[in-house]
Amino acid sequence: MSELIPIQLPLWQMPLLVLLPLALPAVMIAGLRRMVNRRRIPEEERDWSIPPLTDGDGKSLLHRWDVRCKILTILVYSFIIASLRHPEPAAVAVAASLLVLMIARVPLVKVLLRLLALAGFLGMLLVVMPFTVAMHPGDTLLVFGGVNWLGLNLRGLTLAATIAAKAVAIALLMEPLLSTAPLPVTLHGLSRLGVPEMTAQMVLLSYRYLHVFRHEARRMSSGMQLRGFEKRTNLATLHALANFLGMLFVRSFERTERVFDAMRARGYQGQFPAPAELRMHFTDVLISIIWISAGIALIVYDRIVLQG
């Protein structure tokens, strides 16, 4: 502990230096969440008689990129990003992802929703880690008003920020990965990379029935509300919610049988027809090579230049 660098600060600075920086993002996230919920601009009644994303004349480079290359590249790149250790390359990765986002021209609302989903876990890390990381020699500690046991370790803060940056960098790429091709095509690409075709079909089916069950659940919960159900911390609430879950399961298992019957009635015999044909060009591979090279450059910067 001798080589720790404690910086003593008066207690009154604590709100300024700790609570404010924490409160600001929290307020921003709350604001964003409200905005996203409010202003979900009505989608213009587009012409649904044409496929939403026709291949060939896609809007951007990412739209035209072969899905197999896209999936493989982004997956490998994500692993590279996830293994970065320093804040600087992580920040560069975030910048790079923002650039990709601009090239791909994907709807920003969806990207924001993804970031909001991350906020909980990352917020927890940002709050907890500065106070709980192990003390290493050379760490800078902010101690407020002499309360020594509650030292804010700047290394912990950096570590948490690095993790957050990496997570954000990867999360920002998910929307360009998924919304630049129809979901079935992307999943088909996955199956052409060796994942069983059934996985793709199962994801699609789950996705489809997710919506159906959500509506069912919503109607059931209004049914409960209308008979005076209110969520509280007590046994009656848990009992009612357990009934709700039980009913949800009973209904969904029954529906499962009916869906399966409907599939068999239309000739399902254990296999789904392939959704699309994929063509790969040299440029597709070239983009992948460039992209992954960028990732490798980042890891070199991280491991060799910075670690020295």
């Binding site: 529906r255 869906v259 409907a262 000739g267």
Partner: peptide, 26 residues
């Protein structure tokens, strides 16, 4: 051909046209 009571049981495709084509592909 069998038409189910609840259309949600029967429309398992990702888009409408994909669903309609399901039987044809089979």
């Amino acid at each position: 051909g069998l038409l189910f009571q609840d259309p949600d049981d029967q429309l398992f495709g990702h888009t409408v046209v994909e669903d309609v084509a399901f039987g044809l592909r089979n």
